Computed example of a mutant assay.
Amino acid sequence: MEPTKGKTYRSTLALTFDERVIAAFASLWRCLGTADFSAAVMDVLDAVCATDSCGILVYYRQRKPLSLLHRFNPVQRKVAADIYSTGPYALDPQYRLFLAGCPTGAYWLRNVAPDDFYSSEYYQTFYSKTGVADSIDVLWRIDDDSALVFFMQRNIHSNEFTAADLTALNMVLPILSEALTKHYQLATALPQANPDDKTHQQVECTLSHFASSLLTKRERDVLLYMLRGYSSALTAQKLNTSDGTVKIHRKNIYRKLEISSQAELFSLFINCIPFARPDEDSDPLQLYQQNHRL
């Protein structure tokens, strides 16, 4: 296999209506009310701001994300397209933004991520598997509990997004928002996630109870910020305490969990998700360790 060649994309801040952009918008109007409409929206976004990989998710407050489309173009090794929905989404800054109630808009990862996110184990382990280096999410609110997310990604061999890319996306967003509103007045409702799938409940249970049998509440607060990519300094600000105190908590977390790195912490958290019992207050880590000893 030939090595992947990097690309340099130009920003379309002036929104030049070249042949590709015109064709994408024309297709958008043709597809109103049809099953091809969501993909047509993605085509418009990709014409305005070029990507290496892109796709569409539905975010739910009470269920795991549902994948509607994934144009996956990994540059390192192939991974399952649904790996995001098995648990890593819970630590995604853009998903956390959705949970916080952000409005319809374009959100650049570098603007919403915690200060240590790019050196966090979540970024190093999850993003490195997909080859993604940078991303912008165009989020369209359906209601308080759900949203369509058009994710746009560039890989490690391409240039990152720029402020001009974000501006261009925000300029076409009002048009797309009106088109989406009209489409869902004409079309059937969005497909729903499988109500019998307990993954989201297990993820939420793991967030709520992971290591609760070993750590104090304050240590668990620090642990969750560690998993999401917050530095000691920013964690201290969030918890209204000192940087030194947070560092002490981090040392205690490592000692009590018998680990020595954030890589081990992240792996332990992900491995515990299948052992979570949403109807109980039990610690998934304790159940994972018991199973591991058998």
Rank of each mutant, 00 (worst) to 15 (best):
V132Q: 02
L176F: 05
A236Q: 03
E160L: 12
A163D: 15
A211N: 03
S267T: 14
G55V: 01
M42F: 10
D134C: 03
D18N: 09
A164F: 10
D52E: 06
R255M: 13
S27R: 10
L91T: 03
T245K: 12
G229T: 05
K256H: 07
D134W: 00
Y123C: 02
A193L: 09
D165Y: 05
L148Y: 06
A133P: 01
T181F: 08
L148E: 04
N73E: 10
Q202D: 06
T8K: 15
S231Q: 08
R293C: 11
L139G: 01
A163H: 14
N252H: 14
L99G: 12
K78Q: 13
Q94N: 15
N155E: 05
D52L: 02
P3H: 10
K251I: 10
K217G: 08
S128M: 14
D283K: 03
K256Y: 04
C272N: 01
I175T: 15
R10V: 14
L91C: 07
Y254K: 11
N271L: 09
S11F: 06
T12F: 06
D134Y: 00
Q62Y: 11
S146K: 03
A39H: 05
N240D: 14
R220D: 03
D82V: 09
S282A: 14
E264H: 11
S135Q: 04
P274L: 07
I83N: 09
L224K: 07
K7T: 13
R96C: 15
D243P: 08
M152H: 03
D281A: 13
D116A: 15
P74D: 06
T104W: 03
Q124H: 11
T86A: 06
H249S: 10
D165A: 09
P174A: 12
T162N: 09
R30M: 06
S282Y: 11
S212Q: 10
I56H: 01
A26L: 10
Q192C: 10
L68A: 05
F98R: 02
D46T: 09
D134M: 02
D196T: 08
G55R: 00
E2A: 14
L66S: 04
R77Y: 13
A133L: 06
T167P: 09
T4K: 05
F269V: 03
V203T: 04
M152F: 04
R277C: 08
P191F: 07
H157M: 12
R77G: 08
F151A: 03
L45W: 00
Y230R: 02
S135F: 02
L32E: 06
F17G: 05
E160N: 12
F117Y: 12
F126R: 01
S120H: 04
K217N: 11
Q289W: 03
A133W: 00
I136A: 03
Q124S: 11
S208I: 10
T86K: 05
A236K: 01
D165N: 13
R63F: 08
Q192R: 13
Q201D: 15
E264P: 06
Q237Y: 10
V172H: 01
N291A: 14
E2C: 11
G244E: 13
V246C: 06
K251G: 11
Q201G: 15
D145V: 07
Q202M: 08
Y288V: 05
V138I: 12
V203C: 07
E178V: 13
N291H: 15
L176D: 00
N194Q: 09
N291I: 10
I22M: 07
S38G: 13
P93T: 04
I253N: 00
E219D: 11
D137F: 07
L139Y: 00
V112M: 09
S135K: 02
